[in-house]
Design a protein around this nucleic acid. Structure first.
Lengths: 233, 233
DNA sequence: CGCGAGCTTGACGTTGTTCAACTAGAGTGG
DNA sequence: CCACTCTAGTTGAACAACGTCAAGCTCGCG
């Protein structure tokens, strides 16, 4: 497999994950972790973690964008959140070694390193600063998810679409102009509504000169109005 | 203040929090924590953690039921979840010492012990097993919140009310017959809809002999049908 | 060129909100 | 003891929001 190789040290020399690790562990411990690390590329649509299965690794996403996708008992898809590199994926399973609650799927061609979960556990037990770092990452996720609950549960479509656009601009694309990595259908799965209503909401924002859309190209023209719509719900 | 006293060791002898702590720390360490612990009673409606403030303590809820309440910028209330004793409250702030994201408010007369957060941190740094226990509790919360997101975001009212009734019966009251601790309005804040629709949904379930309601008394008669409604959405 | 997937639009029915009116029970003061 | 008031609960009607459906469109690709 050409998308699956041992991470060569040279390109790892400026690896963010390495530098984060070295803040809380010795070079020796990092090399112990690094030994069994596998660099992988993921094409758009490829599943990194499969809902319902166990995964004996974490993935440090070096490049790309992924969605957290939950499929319910009626085979409906829900996007719980979208995450861009750099990010450590799979943490929800570090301490409880349960099956994956949801899938993580690339929505852009991505690259990441599979890190042996057992070794992570060994190091976390051995090194409290590393454990604290992991725990912080994990609780951050919880905090973020609360805002998602509130947005989804209690705003109507325009407010939710505004939320999502702001989220994408701020947290994923880091720009007010971006090319959407997901379809209208997936936007609907994120917003918790039908794709038709996503379209109508986007059109209305376009008509009112708050955003400019052209296919998957989106530009936020008036971020203050967008924030107002988000807050009003 | 008569609702605020040093926890006397005698009634603490069969304390669940103590026995949990002693699984991962020495008696000496527990006494260090215990020294500054204050036992408090909270009346129904009393705020235990205030959204927007910092709280230099955790609370181990020994008795009672509380709601996690978020107030948004439009002064609307949202109940994020309901938790019953025994439970450790305030954990979201252990590692990130930010302000409280939401309030925690008693919905039944309750009793809990305030535990000094700084001492918890000292012990968590010193004792990795304790830190792991705390982290597990914290990630459990995250996992549970995912199901909440899905229910709230993507089900219609009957499904959400069914979810809430099942949640209350299983996780809070531990019985299919219970006396609601919250008003219809609060149920609406939990379900993310208007109180009128909560009432109509409850009436319909009552009419179909799936539940029996009389004021705040609720009895689940046909749990299988209720589960079916919950799954159907 | 023609196919297919994703996108878009409008019509229509369903679901949920808002509003206003009414009821029941609890507390208060004369 | 009776008004009076306050709050929570309830009901129905009008209206708005949203989902579904069916049809047509666009664009990339073979």
């Amino acid at each position: 497999m050409n998308n699956n190789r041992k991470a060569p040290l040279e390109i790892c020399s400026d690896c963010l994950f390495k530098s984060i690790c070295l803040q809380s562990m010795s070079e020796e411990d990092f090399n112990f972790l690094y030994e069994s690390t596998i660099q992988k590329t993921y094409q758009k649509g490829e599943v990194i973690f499969q809902q319902g299965e166990k995964s004996p690794f974490l993935v440090f996403l070096q490049k790309g964008i992924v969605k957290f996708n939950y499929v319910d008992s009626n085979d409906k898809n829900f996007i719980l959140t979208i995450v861009s590199a750099p990010s450590l994926l799979g943490l929800a399973n570090v301490l409880n070694d349960d099956i994956n609650l949801f899938s993580i799927i690339a929505i852009e061609d991505s690259m990441g390193c599979q890190i042996d979960l057992n070794k992570v556990k060994v190091l976390a037990m051995k090194n409290k600063n590393f454990l604290i770092s992991l725990t912080k990452l994990s609780t951050d996720m919880f905090r973020n998810s609360i805002y998602n609950v509130i947005s989804l549960a209690h705003k109507q479509i325009n407010g939710r679409i505004a939320d999502i656009l702001l989220f994408l601009a701020r947290n994923i694309y880091h720009s007010n102009t971006f090319t959407l990595s997901i379809s209208r259908q997936e936007l609907a799965e994120f917003a918790g509504c039908s794709k038709e209503n996503v379209i109508k909401s986007l059109r209305a924002l376009n008509r009112d000169d708050i955003i400019r859309i052209s296919g998957k190209e989106i530009e936020i023209l008036d971020i203050k109005k967008l924030i107002k719509i988000s807050q009003k719900g």
